[in-house]
């Protein structure tokens, strides 16, 4: 029985509630327990200077440490930024500095032991692909998915760790019965970090990736990162207009794809909440006698 300290991040509690809901449902189906950390802060997303985000993240790590659990993230950026902070905090001198200057006031101390794991890694490494396969009730046969990782689940190498983590979405897609439709930019930036700073750059990236998925014949893209989702889904229409083409590529959150294959109800997974319609995906699904419900 697996338990994790659950770090939902900002977006799954804000603009992408469907991510939060689908993760919780899938974890329930897998009989994996999550204990949500509610009183921690935003990771800083690589926007805030690490001089302030490291203390915030050290605090989060310390709280998970107190619970004796690994920290599970559901956002590539949260994973990368907290993961990088955890790596820096391996340095005893730096850790002592952060503990003394920041955490001590709250009576906290981080010992440097918390493991930070994205939901994607948890699925493969803690639950298992074979185990996942055994639970598939509605194989995604005949459907093509383009994996889109979000930068921080691919790089930097020392924060991501094992190299094979760079191909987990493909493995999961296959286990679920779907077909992988590769795009050249699957590990590149979606554009989101630049959206409010240099919008044309951001839109060009979005158009490129979603357009390529379309050109390669994907039915949907799937991403483990809600920021990528906000961008690829939410900005796709503007991006397509700027690129003078139509794209209309549905973007699924990773747990939505998993949930569909495990027989969860599309509506409950929030597929109706996307900007780009997912109706075509839903229509392609084999009906299951009775959609399962998560406990």
């Amino acid at each position: 029985m697996n338990r994790f300290a659950f770090y939902p991040g900002c977006v799954s509690k804000g603009s992408c509630p469907e991510l939060y809901e689908s993760v919780v449902q899938v974890m329930g189906l897998l009989d994996m327990e999550v204990e949500e950390l509610t009183d921690v802060g935003c990771s800083g997303a690589g926007v805030l200077t690490s001089e302030v985000s490291d203390p915030i993240n050290a605090r989060t790590l310390a709280k998970a440490e107190q619970m004796g659990l690994a920290l599970m993230t559901i956002c590539s950026t949260c994973q990368g930024v907290i993961g990088a902070a955890a790596l820096r905090l391996q340095d005893p001198e730096y850790r002592a500095f952060i503990n003394k200057e920041y955490l001590a006031a709250e009576g906290l101390e981080y010992q440097g032991t918390t493991e930070v794991k994205h939901f994607l890694w948890v699925l493969v490494e803690d639950f298992g692909l074979d185990e996942l396969k055994a639970l598939v009730r509605r194989p995604l046969e005949g459907m093509g998915f383009s994996p889109f990782y979000g930068c921080y689940l691919r790089r930097p190498a020392d924060v991501v760790g094992r190299r094979e983590r760079r191909t987990y979405i493909e493995k999961i897609t296959e286990v679920l019965g779907g077909t992988v439709v590769n795009i050249s930019g699957k590990g590149k930036c979606c554009g989101f970090p630049s959206l409010t700073i240099n919008e044309p750059n951001a839109l060009a990236m979005t158009a490129k990736h979603t357009g390529e998925a379309k050109d390669n014949g994907a039915d949907a893209m799937v991403t483990p990162c809600p920021l990528c989702h906000l961008e690829l889904d939410g900005e796709q229409t503007q991006a397509a207009a700027a690129a003078r083409r139509t794209i209309e590529m549905p973007i699924l959150h990773l747990p939505q794809m998993v949930g569909l294959a495990l027989g969860l109800d599309p509506k409950g997974l929030g597929l109706g909440r996307h900007f780009v319609s997912t109706a075509k995906i839903v229509a392609q699904l084999e009906p299951v006698e009775a959609a399962v419900t998560a406990t």
Binding site: T38, V40, G41, P55, R273, F275
Partner: peptide
């Protein structure tokens, strides 16, 4: 329209005051 956003800004969450204190310290 798609139920993706609520009109009101996010409410403060628990822990907000601790984070605020970290900023002050920073």
């Amino acid at each position: 329209r798609r139920g993706k956003a609520n009109l009101l800004p996010h409410p403060k969450r628990p822990g907000a005051s601790a984070i605020k204190a970290l900023f002050a310290r920073y």
